[in-house]
């Protein structure tokens, strides 16, 4: 009997792991594009997530936009903000990758403080349709519908990004520039446009993630700071490719859920970070690096 409860609990942890994995992955998806393909170490990624949550808050409570419509809208809003930042700042720093790290850290401070001055430091809450606000009971398992929703959105968006990168002209241009800048330029690809577009796309994906994280947690000006480390670890250990991020995000989420089952959440996260550091020690290029001559 005890054994059965244990295995049921463990299976529950595995199932929850899928949900945890989807949050890691959706947080890292935008960064996979920004860091993995155009090489910008964007420390403001977490703040783009935060902006997505605040955009959703404004849309929902001031303009009464339904939640499901907020998903694409927060994508668009944050993508535009990302594009602005790319045009004003990032584009001057493509040859100085370490400086993109510093400059985007400055951006993150500015965004946090600006949001704090506009919206205050009090937590805000997002509301979702009642249908998403329930729990599903499946035998032993109970899982919130919203977590399943996140999983579904993450899978759909990942597939969409993959299709975008593989099947569209712009996606092909991004891959071409990643593989060989000079060659791509000689074939008439406008590199500046590609970089700006990729940065906006990555920012928008962060905004989309923020729209959902705002529901999962409370909305605070500094809510993004935790996500940026997580997202980086997923992208770096994945190797910078989309498939790598999916695998590492999945593995990390499952491991975290399993460790949480035996220890507690904080310790689980601590073990994960340590494992990733050890992993990177032996495989600095990550799981699946893009087949490219990196700059």
């Amino acid at each position: 009997m005890e054994h059965m409860i244990f295995s049921a609990g463990f299976a529950d942890a595995l199932l929850l792991g899928l949900s945890v994995a989807s949050t890691w992955l959706i947080a890292a998806l935008g960064l996979t594009i920004v860091y993995g393909t155009i090489g910008v170490i964007n420390m403001a990624h977490g703040e783009f997530i935060m902006l997505g949550a605040y955009a959703t808050y404004v849309l929902e409570s001031k303009l009464h936009v339904p939640f499901l419509l907020c998903l694409p809208l927060s994508f668009l809003i944050v993508a535009v903000i990302g594009l602005l930042i790319e045009r004003l700042l990032i584009r001057y720093l493509y040859d100085r990758p370490l400086d993109t790290l510093l400059a985007t850290w400055g951006v993150s401070i500015v965004l946090i403080q600006a949001v704090r001055l506009i919206f205050g430091s009090d937590p805000l809450y997002l509301s979702v349709p009642n249908a998403l606000n329930q729990n599903w009971q499946l035998g032993f398992f109970s899982i919130s519908v919203f977590r399943v929703f996140i999983l579904a959105v993450t899978l759909a968006v990942s597939a969409a990004v993959w299709l975008f990168m593989q099947r569209t002209r712009f996606g092909m241009q991004i891959r071409a520039v990643t593989q060989n800048r000079a060659m791509a330029a000689s074939f008439g690809i406008n590199q500046k446009r590609v970089y700006a577009g990729a940065f906006a796309l990555g920012s928008g994906l962060a905004g989309l993630a923020g729209c959902m994280f705002g529901v999962l947690n409370i909305v605070l000006p500094n809510m993004g700071s935790g996500y940026v480390v997580q997202a980086f670890l997923v992208v770096v250990s994945g190797g910078g490719s989309l498939v790598g991020s999916v695998i590492s995000g999945g593995a990390v989420g499952e491991l975290q859920s399993i460790f949480s089952y035996f220890a507690d959440d904080t310790l689980a996260l601590c073990i994960i970070f340590t494992l990733i550091v050890i992993f990177l020690r032996f495989r600095p290029q990550g799981l699946i690096a893009p087949s490219a001559s990196r700059r």
Binding site: I41, L101, F232, L269, I276
Partner: peptide, 14 residues
């Protein structure tokens, strides 16, 4: 490069 930054960051967080 950036990897050291990320690894030290992970270590700090851990």
């Amino acid at each position: 490069g950036g990897f050291v930054a990320v690894m030290t960051l992970a270590m700090l967080s851990a």
